[in-house]
């Protein structure tokens, strides 16, 4: 019995201890591991230049971050969620149900998604059609929807190297996956005509769209739920493998990886900024307006993040690999005015 008593009294003690010292003085951020490097660079510079403590940036993925963001308002809740995709309608509703209503959406810039393989292997020049044909469970062959027969890139297109298909793509909890599905798989599905053929075969629109972005499950494609370092390790171990990376990650590891072109365009900061390179996505963070003025430094951190000094074309974020947003001035004005998503 004494065990139970002691345990309860210990818990009561700790509860009393923490309520006594609850006031939080640092900004807390969580979310996308793609945004984490940028957020950490800003947080560090923020701590150096302002009289506020360095903000805390946790990782865990866009969806996990937004889910925590929507848990409620208060000192025990995070102030900012980083996301490598826009917030979904479903998530806004979940937020509202928990009292998180005024959300400020901040777009910090763009990130390219690149396809890279072992540096000693052959070079690849992809199109979205190649990827759809390589990864979809059902593809269009000679006018009929059949189970994916391809196991080698050269079977899909004679111009591609003779190499077995082995892809390491981001898992479903990553925001990167969504961009990959939309800009590569769905685009490839349209372009090969598989989408039309599916509808002609009697599928309704939704089912056809789902079938377009489905990924084969026979082991030729592997979902990576961890970070890009895990994808890199897989590509290192399987020289045949082709991994999906963020541009910034690739640029830090150019000694191990070579990048493939997509539709004839090589991914660089410039080609992504101009929109020439097709697979890129905006990066965001979301602020709880209710926390501005309560948590010291929150607004200053957000403003500092999108300042020209940090997120501008020559700032440290661009140096690390962020493609800066041409409309940065609008974003700065929006934070200044604390404009929430509903006001737009």
């Amino acid at each position: 019995m004494s065990f139970v008593k002691l345990a309860t009294s210990a818990m009561a003690m700790t509860a009393a201890l923490t309520t006594a010292a609850a006031a939080r003085d640092n900004v807390q951020v969580a979310g996308s591991s793609t945004v984490l490097p940028y957020a950490s660079i800003v947080a560090e510079a923020f701590g150096e230049n302002f009289d506020f403590p360095t903000p805390v940036v946790e990782s865990g993925g866009s969806s996990a971050g937004l889910a925590r963001f929507c848990e409620g308002v208060g000192e025990n809740q995070i102030d900012i969620a980083n996301a490598s995709r826009a917030i979904r309608e479903r998530e806004i509703e979940a937020c509202a149900a928990n009292g998180v209503t005024d959300i400020i959406e901040v777009r910090i810039g763009y990130d390219g998604i690149v396809f890279a393989s072992d540096i000693n292997g052959p070079t690849f020049a992809f199109t979205p059609e190649h990827w759809f044909n390589a990864l979809a469970p059902m593809v269009l062959v000679d006018g009929a929807i059949v189970e994916n027969p391809y196991t080698n890139w050269s079977q899909i297109d004679a111009n591609l190297p003779d190499q077995d298909i082995l892809a390491f793509i981001p898992g479903t909890k990553h925001g990167t996956r969504e961009v990959f599905e939309e800009n590569v798989l769905a685009a490839g599905c349209e372009a090969t005509g598989a989408h039309e053929a599916m509808i002609a075969a009697g599928m309704d629109e939704d089912a056809a769209e789902d079938a377009c972005i489905a990924v084969r499950t026979d082991g030729l494609s592997t979902d990576i739920d961890g970070d890009y370092t895990e994808t890199l390790a897989r590509v290192d171990a399987n020289p045949n493998g082709i991994g999906v990376f963020g541009l910034a990650f690739y640029e830090n590891n150019t000694d191990k990886l070579q990048v493939a072109t997509m539709s004839g365009v090589e991914p660089t900061v410039d080609s992504i900024a101009t929109g020439e390179y097709p697979v890129s996505r905006p990066l965001y963070f979301y602020i709880k307006k209710a926390h501005i003025g309560v948590i010291p430094g929150l607004k200053e951190y957000a403003a500092f993040f999108v300042s020209d000094d940090m997120a501008g074309a020559w700032g440290p974020l661009a140096l690390y690999g962020l493609v800066s947003d041409p409309e940065l001035a609008d974003t700065q004005a929006m934070i200044e005015a604390e404009q929430t998503m509903g006001d737009m």
Partner: peptide
């Protein structure tokens, strides 16, 4: 419980901060 990320960036100032600050 959120101890992974860019977190260990401030030295705790004092005992309470050591236990309670991220």
């Amino acid at each position: 419980i959120g101890m992974v990320g860019f977190i260990a960036s401030n030295y705790p100032d004092g005992l309470a901060s050591g236990f309670l600050d991220p």
